Structures are given as C-alpha cells and as structure tokens.
Simulated scan of single mutants.
Amino acid sequence: MLVGDNFTFTATPKDQNGAPVVATVIWSSSNITVGTVDSSGKFIALNPGTAMVNASNGSVSGSADVKVSKVPIAPVLTTITVSPPTATLSIGNTSVFTATALDQNGDPMKGINITWTSSDMAVGNVSPDDAMTGADGKATTTFTAIAAGTSMVNATNGSVVGSADIVVKEKIELINLIKNPSFESGRKNWIFYTNGTGRFDIISPGFEGNNASEVTITRRGSNMQLYQKGLTLKPNTHYRLSFAAKSSSGHDVRVVLLKHGSPYTNYGLRQGFNLTMDWQTFTTEFDTKNFNRKVDDGRLMFYLAPYAKAGDKYYFDSVKLDEIQ
C-alpha cells in the first residue's frame, strides 16, 4: 500500500469444525503510526513502515501483514553541473564541456534537453547548441576560442542553469629549445656518451618524420647517456618536455635537466619514464630551479643507466622543450 491508501479487511469467524459462525470482531493495528483500522476493518495507511491488522474475539485472533510505502515522487530537474568548471584556452583552441542533469535526489536524468550558450560570442562559441542527456544524465558541447577575453559556457533547461568559466588568451607560438628535435639532420647537436661500449645511429622511418635516433648498448657501463647541451633556460620558469621513445627490451629511461659541467647542478627535472617495446609519447611539466639568472649551460640528458643491459636498443624522437607562459 502507499501512504494515503485505504483497504477494508474482512474477518471470517469459524467454529472448531471450520464452519462460519456469527461473532463480534474487534479490529486493531499493531502500529498506529503506520496505519489505523476502524471497527469495520478499514485500514488507512499513514506513514511508510509495516504493521499487522488484527481481528480478535476473546482469545481467538487472526492477522494480516501490511507494508506501507511512500508515494513515489516524479523526478524533477534540480541541478545542472558543468565540467570542467574552468578552462584556459588559446585563440583557436577548443575544449569539450559536459553537462550533467540531476534530480532532487542527486540522480542523473535521461532525456533532458540542454541548451548550450556562450555568454560572449565574440570570445568563443559552442557547438552543438542543443543536446539531449543520455542514460548517464550527460550531454556535451565544444567551445571554440575566437578572441582573447572571458566567457561563460552555460547549460540551461528552463530555470535550471549550470556554468563554466573560460579565459581565452592570445595564441603564443611555443619555441622549442631543442635543436634537431626529430633527428632530421642526423646526429647533429646530439651526443652519445658511455663508459661502456655502444653506438649512436639514425634510423628511418622515425616516429613522426623520416628519422629517429637509435642507441645500441654493446657493453653496459655505469654512465650511458644521449644528451644535448647548451640549452638557454630562465630561472623559476615553467617548462614542458615531450618526446617519443621505446626500447627493444622495454627497459626504462631517466630524463634529467642539469648544468653541463661541474658541479652538474640539477635544473629542475629528474624523472623516470616507463618505456615499452612500442613507440609512446611522454609529457611532463616542471619549474626550473637552483639558479637565479638566465643560463646557457643546460643539458637535457636521456640517462640509460642503470636500466639498460647489453644488447638493448633505445629509440628517441620528437623531443620538445617549451617554455609555458
């Protein structure tokens, strides 16, 4: 039964032989908070819960179990959340935003029409501008940055609105500090050093272009590295390093940015990367440290010890080191 429903129970008194007899029955409810019963056997459901409806005459009684449930309430759209809640883009870049429609219980709602808008169409626009939520309550749109400024991406249905804040910046052309980053000029600007034995070759094709580097370890040493020196770096500045790499055995590599020369001061990057036997791209960001004025003695080093073994081959390509503003 649902709260507010009623039901009239019928009691049938019988004698010792099972034959119906006329007898006065007294009705009662074991839990009058859940529901009450009157003298005619009519039970009125008041609150969710369970109760027993009893019909008695003297020491003889019969009962029925009653379960009362709350009246189902239709889901009502209460909240729209938008993620990511903030974004910073450069002119010409895009970002996907997701609206999630939630009912009064915080459950996702399917079939909600979301109207997408940009608060400043001069800064950026959205597409599509209409989308229906799926079974997960989600609908998406793509914001395209047009001009520098701020805007809001709004997801609306009726009076319910969710928003995300966007900052669009002028597009900055990143300058790669690495020379010959894809080994298209062969081994130029790159140096291989080992106190074991090995060689540094150029192979084709590369990960993206025509060439890539190949480092072969013939006899393992305690110092094995492929590096580029003479990098100009700013102090306390945010940089992004990306590269493609693999190794014939899946052995790893450590990448270090340091001073090219004694005392070999670390300039902010010392990180291991988990290589496999297939090409992968890796990206990391870091802040330079341990110097307080511009330097031009930076060394970016792919350090193979202690990972590499005799017979291993390492491959590197598309090395980029950019200042992030």
Rank of each mutant, 00 (worst) to 15 (best):
K309M: 14
A147Y: 13
K171N: 09
V160K: 11
A45W: 02
P263S: 03
G206H: 10
D296N: 09
S119G: 13
K320L: 05
G268A: 00
T281C: 11
F97M: 00
A244K: 05
V3L: 01
P205Y: 12
N290P: 07
V167N: 05
P85E: 10
D65P: 08
T281M: 13
F282Q: 01
V295W: 04
S159V: 14
S83L: 06
S40F: 00
F243A: 10
A164C: 01
S318P: 03
S56P: 07
G230Y: 10
G58F: 03
M52W: 03
V253K: 07
R219E: 13
F243H: 13
Y307S: 06
V295H: 06
V60S: 14
D296G: 09
M52R: 13
G41W: 03
G196H: 09
P84N: 13
S83V: 02
N211I: 00
T218V: 11
Y264P: 00
T142N: 02
G268R: 04
T36Y: 07
T94F: 04
I217S: 12
S182F: 01
Y267W: 05
L177Y: 11
N47G: 11
T150M: 06
G206R: 02
V60L: 14
L174T: 12
G209F: 06
I175H: 04
N211L: 01
A310V: 01
A164V: 03
F200Q: 01
D287N: 05
Q16M: 12
T197S: 15
V22S: 11
I91V: 13
T232C: 07
K320R: 10
M52A: 09
W190H: 01
V96K: 08
A55F: 08
T142F: 07
M109R: 03
Y303N: 09
R293G: 11
T79P: 04
A101L: 10
V253H: 03
N17T: 10
T218L: 07
N157I: 05
E184I: 06
K246Q: 10
F97D: 08
N195A: 15
T98L: 08
S83Y: 00
A11K: 01
S39V: 08
P306G: 13
H251P: 06
S40Q: 02
I44A: 05
H238C: 02
I26E: 12
T8A: 12
N57Q: 12
A64N: 07
S262H: 08
D278L: 11
T140W: 10
I191F: 00
N113E: 10
G124F: 07
T94E: 04
V123T: 04
P13A: 03
S29E: 05
A308H: 06
T281D: 14
N93G: 01
S63L: 05
S69I: 14
T10L: 05
V22D: 05
L177I: 08
G62M: 09
N211Y: 02
K179C: 06
K246P: 14
A45P: 04
A131D: 07
F192E: 02
H251Y: 06
S119R: 06
F282P: 03
G272D: 13
Q325Y: 14
N266C: 02
I324T: 10
I73C: 14
G261Y: 02
L233C: 00
Y314T: 12
M277L: 11
A74Y: 03
A23S: 15
M132C: 06
K169L: 11
G186P: 08
